[in-house]
């Protein structure tokens, strides 16, 4: 998911403090929120910084695939909606960077780590947006999957992250609905060519969206600890299954088919069973070799470099004003 970072191995941690750790765990078990100044194990801090940073980076890089269509939206209504959505994603990135900063890292450091590749963003944003239907599918499925993941994060044990997620979840629902509305327009009210375009978009996005939830539970390295710390409330596979169950009927309403011959309703479990995910594709995209990885990072770096003079200018302006005020105060005091 936006938190695929949970599936990376920890670096070496300093010696543990079992007594404090037990007290910490007791607070978590009692559903108390952990706040920035509270004592916490280094592993908890490290996991959260990595997860929140990856989540923030995903919101920021996530603006690119959709931003690609703002100037070509088919109507003014669609254009203002898409603009507002992309602006929201930028805002989500900022809420999350500020949550991460409460753990003692600076936003500048995190941005640097995104740009030099030390920190990742969600694999899903390395796929291209080829047609307008992709914008519909992203809202419907990518934001839909994000919501599935983010709702339990509103109860995350770390206060600033949980509070940022509550704010984000309130805004996400519009994202998903505007995407689905685009799909309805193409599939139920559109021409056969428009419906075919929607089907093509679903065919390309379906599997990458399922991969957003991260490796299956047997291969996920962090699930246990994150669950114990109540950073995570459901496993990757649980969330993926919930998502498939919620989404298949929505796709059928559109009259679309899913690109999975094994997808069928299982009467005994009451869930939709789906085919095997191609994890080699997932690993390839995460390690930097997806269709758009290079382009996304190049665009982020360029935006950062082109903004450098603005950052320098606002700081210089603030310093000059401060100096002027101080000088005036000095004259007044004489």
């Amino acid at each position: 998911m936006y938190t695929q970072a949970l599936n990376v191995k920890d670096t070496a941690l300093p010696a543990a403090d079992p007594q404090r750790e037990a007290r910490f765990q007791a607070r978590i078990d009692a559903e108390e929120k952990i706040e920035p100044n509270d004592w916490m194990p280094d592993g908890y801090r490290q996991t959260l910084v990595r997860q929140i940073a990856q989540h923030a980076h995903s919101e920021i890089v996530g603006m690119h695939p959709e931003g690609n269509w703002i100037t070509r939206a088919p109507s003014l209504k669609r254009k203002v909606a898409l603009l507002a959505k992309v602006q929201d994603e930028g805002g989500h990135g900022l809420y999350l960077y500020s949550a991460a900063e409460t753990l003692g890292v600076s936003r500048e450091e995190l941005v640097e780590q995104l740009l030099d590749g030390r920190q990742k963003y969600s694999s899903i944003f390395n796929y291209p947006t080829m047609t307008w239907a992709d914008v519909g599918v992203i809202g419907w499925l990518v934001d839909g999957a994000a919501i599935m993941n983010q709702i339990p994060l509103c109860r995350c044990s770390f206060g600033p992250y949980a509070r940022a997620m509550i704010r984000i979840c309130k805004e996400e629902s519009f994202h998903q609905r505007q995407g689905y509305e685009i799909m309805v327009a193409l599939c139920r009210d559109g021409t056969p060519a428009q419906k075919a375009m929607a089907q093509d978009a679903l065919n390309r996005w379906w599997w990458p969206v399922l991969m957003m939830f991260g490796p299956s539970d047997q291969d996920s390295q962090h699930t246990d600890k994150s669950m114990r710390w109540k950073i995570k409330r459901f496993t990757n596979d649980e969330l993926r299954r919930k998502f498939v169950d919620a989404t298949v009927p929505q796709g059928r309403y559109l009259g679309l088919t899913f690109p999975d011959p094994d997808l069928k309703f299982d009467e005994t479990t009451g869930h939709w069973a789906f085919g095997a995910i191609d994890w080699s594709e997932f690993r390839r995209v995460v390690s930097g070799d997806g269709p758009c990885n290079r382009q996304r990072l190049r665009q982020r770096k360029r935006a950062h470099e082109r903004g450098a003079w603005v950052r320098a200018a606002v700081l210089a302006h603030a310093a000059k004003r401060r100096a002027r005020e101080q000088a005036a105060a000095g004259v007044a005091a004489e």
Binding site: L94, Y95, S98, A99, E101, R107, R163, A164, R167, V314, L315, H317, A318, R321
Partner: peptide, 11 residues
């Protein structure tokens, strides 16, 4: 509500 980065109060 949260925090922001800015060079001065107005921004």
């Amino acid at each position: 509500a949260g925090s922001v980065h800015a060079a001065d109060a107005e921004m």
